[in-house]
């Protein structure tokens, strides 16, 4: 096998005739084996693309299953608001508690220093 053929075969899965460098295009123009190889990849890609037009029918219960799952999930707008609000409240409460605990710790430390001195 010629070097040019090997190069074409190695890059053929990622390219097509239009994507080949000029020097390789010249080779492909006169090499039936490389033309056939590129044609195979072209056909493969057309077949794969044709699968996009074929739809597999979803199982009958899918829509009902989704409806049941959605019914148990609440309204998304409410869920969003319902989640955001407690999170904010909890964060604020946490910050207040942490600040109070810090202040108490500082006061206790100062008190202990006064007592020991």
């Amino acid at each position: 096998m010629k070097t040019s053929c090997r190069v074409v075969r190695s890059i053929a899965p990622s390219t097509d005739v239009a994507g080949l460098a000029k020097v390789l295009s010249n080779h492909v123009g006169s090499c039936l084996s490389c033309q056939a190889e590129l044609a195979r990849y072209g056909k493969l890609r057309r077949q794969l693309a044709s699968l996009a037009e074929v739809t597999v029918q979803a199982p009958e219960p899918l829509a009902a299953e989704v409806a049941a799952a959605v019914a148990s999930n609440g309204n998304p707008a409410e869920t969003e608001a319902g989640l955001a609000h407690p999170v904010r409240v909890a964060a604020a409460a946490g910050a207040v508690v942490a600040a109070a605990a810090g202040a108490a710790a500082v006061a206790a430390w100062r008190h202990s220093r006064i007592v020991t001195s």
Partner: peptide
């Protein structure tokens, strides 16, 4: 928040998603 509307969307798109 209209669940019925969402169910219709599911029916329209279930085959392509599946």
């Amino acid at each position: 928040g209209d669940r019925a509307a969402f169910s219709d969307l599911v029916r329209h798109h279930q085959d392509e998603v599946y």
